[in-house]
């Protein structure tokens, strides 16, 4: 399996295989994105996105669309910038000191990467699920009710109860927890905790769910449950998922984007990309020559 410790992309991340090392030094002009980055009627459109951590240039000139009701998988070796890219879309990089994001992220004809745009409604529209399940140290009910409460989405307790139930049902957790909503969320198993976090994100009724390696801390059975859930959720939400597992990307996503050292190397329909990769680096990666 692949390691998942490197959360932040660094362009000088070491490659494991000799082949990769040679390829990593291919000149810039050979690193143009292969495949169609654009879709019709996109939910999110990124133009010339660059991210810097202090002096380090983490991702370069990314152009990429996220379509409506699709699952877009972001794959690539550790430190390739896929998590950084994901965190641009709901401006979570704002919370990292020294991080600078340049370029446009267009949502509903508005560039949400401009400082005037308030992150509060943006993040409400783009729910996020993190690498490690991070339920709050509160009851299961309060975890799910957190978003609706702070945003004032419900008028009364009955409505709130309904939102909590709906979210838990959609997250496939309701049957397991309906008897013990008042117990701490931290007492659940890892997979249940992650589904609780998904329910917490759903409760705000976002348009997009951003998932940052949501299964990397889970066992295979819990992973399978979450993957099935993603396919279900696709009917109501747009999902953008970062994953280390090519198998996972192949199983759940419609489109796949392959990142390498801060560059977007190739984008395409998932089936296409895994069967006929258009770029040598993509082929090397999916055939396991480096990782």
């Amino acid at each position: 399996m692949y390691e998942s410790e490197a959360k932040l992309a660094e362009p000088n991340a070491t490659m494991r295989s000799g082949v990769g090392n040679v390829r990593a030094t291919v000149p810039r002009e050979h690193r143009q994105t292969v495949g169609n980055t654009r879709v019709d009627n996109p939910r999110i459109r990124c133009n010339k996105l660059n991210v810097y951590y202090g002096d380090t240039h983490a991702i370069h000139d990314i152009n990429l669309d996220v379509g409506n009701n699709e699952i877009l998988a972001l794959i690539g070796p550790s430190g390739c910038g896929k998590t950084t890219f994901l965190r641009c879309m709901n401006r979570m990089n704002d919370t990292i000191p020294g991080c600078r994001v340049e370029g446009e992220i267009i949502v509903d004809k508005q560039n949400v990467n401009s400082p005037e745009v308030d992150v509060v409604p943006l993040r409400a529209r783009m729910g996020m699920v993190f690498q490690k399940p991070n339920p709050f140290p509160k009851s299961i009910y309060e975890n799910v009710a957190f978003g609706p409460r702070i945003h004032g989405l419900t008028a009364n307790k009955a409505e709130l109860d309904e939102v909590v139930e709906t979210s838990l049902v959609k997250a496939g957790l309701w049957d397991e927890v309906k008897e013990r909503l008042d117990q701490p969320g931290t007492g659940l198993s890892g997979g249940q905790q992650q589904r609780l976090c998904i329910a917490r994100a759903i409760a705000v009724q976002p348009e997009v769910i951003l998932m940052d390696e949501p299964c990397s801390a889970l066992d295979p059975i819990a992973t399978a449950v979450i993957e099935n859930l993603m396919v279900e959720l696709r009917q109501n939400f747009t999902i953008c998922i970062v994953t280390h597992s090519m198998q996972q990307a192949a199983r759940v996503s419609n489109r796949t984007a392959f990142f390498h050292l801060g560059d977007l190397i190739e984008v395409g329909e998932t089936n296409e990309l895994f069967i006929r990769p258009g770029h040598q680096l993509t082929e090397d990666y999916i055939t396991g020559r480096f990782g």
């Binding site: 979570m92 994100a201 705000v204």
Partner: peptide
């Protein structure tokens, strides 16, 4: 992160 991610 969990809280900011929801828009708090």
């Amino acid at each position: 992160d969990g809280s900011y991610g929801i828009g708090a």
